[in-house]
Structure formats: C-alpha cells, structure tokens
Design a binder for these strands. Structure first.
Lengths: 253, 253
DNA sequence: ATCGAGTTGAACTGACGAGTTCAATCCTTT
DNA sequence: AAAGGATTGAACTCGTCAGTTCAACTCGAT
C-alpha cells in the first residue's frame, strides 16, 4: 500500500543488500525440500525461509526444477566433503591395532551417515529419482562413488602392507560400508528418529569384527597367490562351481 | 484384528454389493502411489485406473491418507510373503556344499529385492516416513523384521549343526543380508533401471564368499568358547584389547 | 415388480501453488 | 548526487487437487 508502512521492522536480517542471496536460497531450498518433499515444497515457503522475495528465486534459478537440481547438488558436495574428511588420517602409517584403526574410521563414517542432512538427502533421492534421474547420477558420482573409491584405496594400503588380505579393494570397501552402516536405516527409521547410541556402536563394532574375520590374513603364503584372480573363464550361471582360489570352503589344503 | 474377517473371495461372501471394488482400488492405489508419489498421486487417477468412481473410494476408505496406509500395508504383506517363501527349503537338511546352499538362498532373496514392487514400496517409504511414521513401523514389523528373524533362525540351524560358526544369529542374518544386497540400490539406481545380471551375480557370490570367510568354523574348540560374549567390562577405546577369539593378530601355526 | 444398498458421472467448492508482472525501493558505482 | 541494476512486495493468472453433493443407475434379494 502506501509507503508509510513499509519495513515495519527496523532490523532486516540480511538486509536488502545482496550478499549471498544465492547461497541463502540454496540453503533454504534444501531445508524445505528435505522437510516437505519436492512436490509439497512451495516456492513461497522457500522464499520466506531464505528471507528473499519470490522473484529473486526466479532471477537466480529459472524455476523449481532447476532450483531442486542445484540445491541437491550443493548438499551432495557438502555431505561428500564431510565424509571424505572422515577418511583423512586413515590408515595410520603403522597402526598398532588394526581393529582399533578400523573401528575408528568406521565410527567417523557412521557419524557422517547419521547426520540429519545426509538422511534428508537420501530420502529426497529415493523419492525423486524417478522424476530426476540425472540428479541421482550426479549424487552417485560426487557422493558414494568418491567415498567408496577413497576407502578402497586406503584399504588397499593396508592390504599392501600385509595387514589385510584383500583381493578386490573396491568390493571390500563396499562390503565394509555395508557391514558397518547397513543397519542404520532400521535403527533410525530412515533418519526420522534419534539412533540409540549403544545399539549403533554395537552394530559398528560387530561389523568391523566380521570384516576382520573375513579379511585378516590367515596364512603367510596366502598373500602371494592372491595377486592373480582374473575371471578369464566365462561365468555362465548353470556352470559348475569352479575351484576359484583359496577362497573359503577349503581353508586347509 | 485378524485379517481374515470379511471379503476375500471374488464371490460376495456376505450381503456385500458388487464385485471386489476394494481390491481393485487397493491395486490401483499402490500402482499410482508408486508411480507418482503420495502428493502427486491424484484420487481421480486412482479411480480411473481402478475402473471405479471417485466417491466409491471414499465409501471404502475415508480419504487419501487412509487409502495410502492400507495400500502400503497390503503391498508390504504381499512382498513379505514372497520373500519369506524364498527362505523355504533353506537350509537343506544335510547340505553337500555350504557355499552353494548360501548362494542359492541369497540369489532367491535378491530376486525378491529386485522386484519392481519391492523398490516402489521402498521409495514410497523413504519419501513418506516423515509424514507417516506409523506406516514405517508397520512395514518394518511385517516386512524386514520378519525376514531377518526367519533368516536368523535358519542360520542358527546351520550353526547348531556345526556348519557355521555364529555367535549371534540375528546379527549374522543382518550382515548376510547387508553383504548380498547392499549394492543393489546403486546397481539399479534405486530400482529405476534394470540391473546388470552379471554385476548382480558377482556381488551376491562375493557377498557369500565374504560371509563364509567370516563365519566358517575354523577351529573345533572355537565353537565352545564363543557362547559367552557379554559386555560386562566397559569397552573404552584406550583399554587393552581383549584376546577374544583367534580373530586377527594371531595367526595360528 | 419392487426395494434398496452400492455405485456412478458430473459438477462444484475451497484451497493451494507455479510462474508472471510491475511499480516502488534499495545498494553500489561513478 | 545521480544512474542503474538488483531486489522487493503484492497482486494476478491459470491450473490442479481433495473432498463433497446429488440425481440417476445397476443389480441382487425378496
């Protein structure tokens, strides 16, 4: 109406100065999207939460879809960076106790996974991957793929120094993550309830325990012969079981 | 409270009016909800797909929320029954080859998990657990909890007959499922793309391999001493590591 | 044939959201 | 101080959807 009543509040949170409107919008967007879901989230709500007018959103991003894409990408990068940081310093150059070493990194990783933002991101992806396949691809590439890769490299170091017996570091990394984190969705109700710390710690240590039982070097000569494990022979489903390597069914040979 | 109360046959068992509109509505509902998500799914679309008028939906279920609850519950029961059926006949009374046995049941389980309905259900739960916490609880109780329990019991049989060395069957069941199925979300892009059969089979056999390496009985006397694994003593990180079993740093020889 | 419960199509209400427009306003630059 | 671009608030269009109402209809039961 008349300009006599403009700015009823003398304090303006971020003022009208354009500091980082863009950042503010992205922050608010990922929060609202996470809370309401893509369809339910309203641009008015995002604008309000960002302390920004609705047209400003259209100035920076072209519309809802693009805003969603950029917000998810931003959140993915932030989450991924945090998780990769949890891998820093693992493994210790000459770890005294391998179990402690693994439990340490596992705990740090799980601490990342239990983060509210991480869960929100995952719920959004499950909900919207059908609508936004490209968003899922970006997420996989800059999130889990990087983490799994980095972990594989570090496990490979331990294997190389003889502390672990790992033929395929990539697979071992995936299995390590599966063992320590697979129970979390149930423990936290897909991230919607606080996790019981005791139960989580039990799950993590138990996962590390199983990982160690599976990948601890058992015999000295095992280490040498696991370099070659190619799959030159076809692996048709109906074919009989090949002896493979020193795998498991015959520890004494 | 038991579900077998009224209509279940295509004939009208009681003085009910028409054919089983109710079933048709539930079928269409879960399909549309799975395809569009809860918010986006329209009751008009569900009515059309069920071959039913919109008011009929309100006659049977009171509104959208209740329809969603009942549709998800129905889908959960169907999916759970299928998965439990995959556990039938495992383990074979006297399995020749434990690896084949485990790979068999793992393959059957994974075949259930890759089902389109199973994925749709999971995506819906991730998307709507915030809005419908009770739905998640029902799903967990009649779905994963049952499956994990049943698997634990069957693994316990194998442990009891000395084929496996398992201290905590429940945890082992969870870890078995994690090892064989944790890679599926990535392989299938959360169920939105067909899985590469080769890659899936590799993941399953590799998971079974790791499981066997971890839980194959190694020494005879081990079996006895792992019954008591209480945590009476505090498990502070800095404390000396208890010898536990033959786990890692002591290659017998 | 009649009754009546269940079903149907259609139209309607009320609410909400995406996207747009525009004059007024703020901040920075010159 | 003046210019000029970014930002703002508010109102508006257009479409969708949950939920409701109602007269007409179907079909089995009596």
């Amino acid at each position: 109406m008349t300009p006599g009543d403009t700015n009823s509040a003398p304090d303006r949170p971020t003022g009208r100065g354009r500091i980082d409107k863009r950042r503010a919008i992205l922050d608010a967007a990922i929060r609202v999207f996470a809370r309401e879901g893509y369809v339910q989230a309203g641009l008015d709500a995002i604008a309000a939460e960002a302390g920004v007018a609705k047209p400003t959103i259209y100035n920076h991003f072209g519309g809802k879809e693009n805003l969603f894409r950029e917000a998810v990408l931003e959140a993915t990068q932030r989450s991924s960076a945090k998780t990769l940081a949890a891998l820093e310093g693992f493994p210790t150059p000459q770890p005294d106790d391998l179990r402690t070493e693994l439990e340490g990194v596992a705990t740090r990783l799980v601490e990342c996974f239990r983060d509210e933002n991480s869960w929100a991101l995952q719920r959004l992806l499950y909900a919207e991957t059908v609508r936004f396949p490209a968003v899922f691809d970006d997420w996989r590439a800059t999130g889990p793929a990087k983490v799994s890769d980095a972990l594989a490299g570090r496990l490979a170091r331990l294997a190389n120094s003889g502390r672990l017996s790992i033929a395929e570091p990539d697979r071992a990394a995936g299995q390590f993550l599966a063992l320590i984190a697979d129970g979390m969705p149930m423990l936290s109700a897909l991230g919607t309830r606080p996790i019981d710390d005791e139960a989580l710690h039990e799950a993590v240590t138990s996962g590390v325990e199983t990982f160690l039982k599976a990948f601890s070097p058992r015999d000295a000569e095992d280490q040498e012969e696991q370099e070659k494990q190619d799959e030159a022979s076809g692996r048709s489903a109906g074919a009989g079981r090949r002896p493979r390597s020193r795998s498991a069914a015959s520890p004494r040979h």
